[in-house]
């Protein structure tokens, strides 16, 4: 008898245990958005570390040029506008998706991509100007930290654009299926997240750098 093994135990110590060996019903993609949110939060920590590095090293010019000599605020304002416009146009794409209009989604995504590309073009123009003036990442700790922080953000935008292009191809192929809706929503979170990070960049790097 199996129970005899427990005969030395107190009666109250016998508790029933259940092991659920069967798979639960997990609807497809039910955890995608939460998983992607966790990715964004970890990405947030990458930027936190880069901001911390910039905060620590941002004043070490090594007798080289400082923020006041280098930053052109009108250009940064234009860049900020591009990213903000791309945020609202992606919002319009999400509205079109909710209404089930594939062509509307595609149109707004293309507009978003154009604004994103304009942002990148302006940023690359700024970087090439800096490097032409001798303000390279090797010049000082301030410039190393600056190029790492702003460059990492720019790389994120670049990959966002590649992702956007991929989704446009998939959208033409599959239409607005549930899987496509999830993918488009994930990219929308990624895109808006980049705008949130940019708020930190233009405030703490450009505006406060100019004030310093």
């Amino acid at each position: 008898m199996r129970l005899s093994a427990f005969s030395s135990l107190q009666p109250g110590a016998l508790t029933a245990q259940y092991y659920d060996l069967d798979e639960h019903d997990h609807p497809e993609g039910a955890s995608t958005l939460f998983g992607f949110w966790l990715y964004l939060m970890s990405d947030c920590l990458i930027f936190a570390m880069l901001f911390a590095a910039y905060g620590v090293l941002g004043g070490n010019y090594a007798a080289g040029p400082g923020p006041k000599d280098l930053f052109e605020l009108p250009l940064v304002a234009l860049n900020t506008a591009m990213l903000l416009f791309s945020s609202i146009t992606y919002g319009f794409a999400m509205i079109a998706m909710q209404r089930g209009r594939t062509a509307g989604v595609q149109g707004w995504l293309v507009v978003t991509a154009l604004f994103g590309a304009a942002f990148l073009a302006i940023e690359l123009h700024e970087f090439s100007n800096l490097i032409a003036d001798g303000a390279t990442p090797q010049r000082s700790a301030f410039l190393s930290a600056f190029f790492t922080l702003v460059g990492t953000h720019g790389l994120h935008v670049t990959f966002g654009l590649i992702w956007l292009g991929t989704l446009l191809v998939q959208l033409a192929k599959h239409g607005l299926t549930d899987a496509m809706r999830r993918r488009l929503f994930c990219l929308s979170m990624f895109w808006h997240f980049l705008d949130v990070v940019w708020v930190g960049v233009f405030t703490f790097v450009y505006l406060m750098g100019t004030l310093r």
């Binding site: 993609g29 958005l33 919002g91 999400m94 509205i95 909710q98 549930d178 999830r182 488009l184 929503f185």
Partner: peptide, 9 residues
């Protein structure tokens, strides 16, 4: 149209 896939906006 599978509105459950993503939150409402």
């Amino acid at each position: 149209h599978g509105h459950d896939a993503v939150p409402h906006v």
